[in-house]
Amino acid sequence: MNVTLRIWRQANASAKGQMVTYQVQDVSKDMSFLEMLDMLNEQLSVSGEEPVAFDHDCREGICGMCGVVINGLAHGGAQTTTCQLHMRHFEDGAVIDIEPWRAGSFPVIKDLVVDRTAFDRIIQAGGFISSNTGSAPDAHAAPVGKLQADRAFDAATCIGCGACVAACPNGSAMLFTSAKITHLAMLPQGQPERYLRVKSMVAQHDEEGFGGCTNIGECAAVCPKQIPLDVISQLNRDLIASLFKKDGK
């Protein structure tokens, strides 16, 4: 199959970007979307042009490094990562728009590559359980009911790709933040810091310049790990509860 690509090209953070059109021929439908971009880049390299910069690493849908907005939808809207999107999802002759995540807190580094370190800072604010190496009690010391464990796991599957922010009309990172909150809040080990954690992480989220949540649900609809929207409600509940808890300071 042949496709026409319109790709956002931007030389660096301060440069002005624009959409540039490219043609790619003889694409196989079994190729992944990124392999199709590889093909384009090989073409560009051979002709001496600068290849399109895009982030990617594991290419098996788990590292969270890749991610572009395809035809207006984060990761192409297939609830998977861009690397797991295959060309069989597109028609022969398709015109495909490719843009970077767009959020003030995710500045473009080059072309389709953005800086997502804001997520790290949200985790730094409290997205952990303080447990020093070597000080842990036996793993069976605190049993965790299966339902709780499963809910923690479902939230913990977040890969930090940033699609939620890219898709949110408000540019909010609430799904990311609350996935971490929910993961840790469901486990007995997460209880001592639970209310302090939610306050600090939400404060950091806001300080990073992400928008507020208005419960539209666009984030969960594109999340490659299908993090459910209800984690945001869990965060809200914990945040409200923290107002009445001493350990929420």
């Binding site: 939808l73 003030g104 009309p169 408000n170 540019g171 539209i216 666009e218």
Partner: peptide, 19 residues
Amino acid sequence: RAHAARSTKYVAKKTIQQT
């Protein structure tokens, strides 16, 4: 806040869930 969080708009934008 929402406007500040996305100062550059998408060239093409679609939605799935938004009512």
